[in-house]
Amino acid sequence: MNSFSLDGLDATGIASARLSLPLGQVADDKAMLRTAAEMTRDLLAPRPALYWTDLLLSTAVGYAALAGAILFEPLDWAIVSWLVSVLALYRAASFIHEVSHMKHAAVPGFRLGWNALIGVPLMAPSFTYEGVHNLHHAKTRYGTAEDPEYLPLAHMKPWSVPLFVLVSALAPIGFLVRYALLTPLTILVPWLRRPVEARFSALCINPEFRRRPTEGEAMRRWWQLEIATSIWAIGLIAATATGVLPLKAFVILLATISGMMAINQVRTLVAHLWENEGEEMSLTAQYLDSVNVPPPATLPVLWAPVGLRYHALHHLLPGLPYHSLGEAHRRLSTAFDGHSPYHKASYDGLPGLLNRLVRGTLRSR
């Protein structure tokens, strides 16, 4: 299939065109979009048993390894156990992305179960992503100043890349402040509530993003999760201060959350090319600005779990559940010929993508 065209260039020119033209000028390849939708319609149904099995196993391994990191005396075994805990709980936590997209009637109780197992204990309840992440997929918002999950990182200063990761590593301190301090304060001082909701209630990377008010059932669920998380955070601090929870256990828990957030931030660095500077973009341009890291690469199973290795495909077909993305990619890779823009979003792995980003920041100096 040879359907992509751009300002008079045929599909053979897409690689150079993507680099030389602003993404805002890339038109939609309607044939590719239509074919992708048609060929994956049978993959749209989520498989509840797989969702629950994956989440429960990841959670069980993660917390068991966390206990090992706290209890093991030999330092080497404690470190290995901690690394297993970080990776397993990171996989479990990554289901927040699925929670933000799924029709909840299709996987009954999953949002509640995820929050009980992961969201509240790790102080990142689902309301911080629901109602936020969907804005990243809005055609008129993606890559603009109103996108909570986009920054033109490829055009920023070189020091912005390590700073981007460092800030995420401090997240557990921010979580404690948010829920142990700010939640009670907004109850005692009601006028604080609006700025806290707008500025400190979303998992986002755009510092200019301000969350709009939530109402109705979503707001009721938000309050339930926030109060549960606040009680948990206050309880952690109180238990540690009184010696009920050993300081070592508290520090290792925070270090685990920090490690998870740092890995996710590194993944975020390579989830897109970050080349847009605020223009509205076509869906095809959004796809080309996003990244797939398909097999034969193996390490993405660890640093981009739960379908996140197919991030570009997810932007093309956001309704596909995570377990369908691999099959969808196989089908579409076969259906489109080598000149199709579909293949232009696939990359070999993390090192090359990070190198590309860093080189982009150096050119922007």
Rank of each mutant, 00 (worst) to 15 (best):
Q265D: 09
A198T: 07
I173N: 04
E208Q: 14
P121E: 09
L9C: 05
M39E: 15
V270S: 00
W77F: 15
R356T: 07
M261F: 09
S5Y: 00
A198P: 03
P207N: 10
M32E: 01
A239K: 04
M32Y: 03
H314F: 10
M260A: 06
L166K: 09
R267E: 05
V161W: 00
I70C: 06
I231E: 02
Y129W: 07
I231P: 01
L163F: 10
N134H: 14
P295H: 07
L71K: 12
L181S: 07
F72K: 09
T240I: 11
T144W: 08
L325H: 01
S324H: 08
P295T: 07
R111H: 12
P152W: 01
P296E: 08
V189W: 11
F127M: 04
V358H: 10
V244I: 15
T298L: 15
I118N: 02
T334A: 15
M32W: 03
L75T: 13
W274K: 06
R47W: 03
T240Q: 06
E130S: 13
P162Y: 06
W232V: 06
V86W: 02
A78W: 01
P158G: 05
V161E: 01
A171V: 12
H323V: 05
V291N: 01
A297G: 05
V266F: 04
E217T: 11
N2Q: 14
H339R: 12
M32L: 14
S324E: 08
L362W: 15
R330D: 14
E149C: 11
V165F: 08
A304K: 04
E146H: 15
H311T: 10
L163P: 05
E280C: 11
H101L: 05
I96L: 12
R34F: 10
D147N: 05
V84C: 06
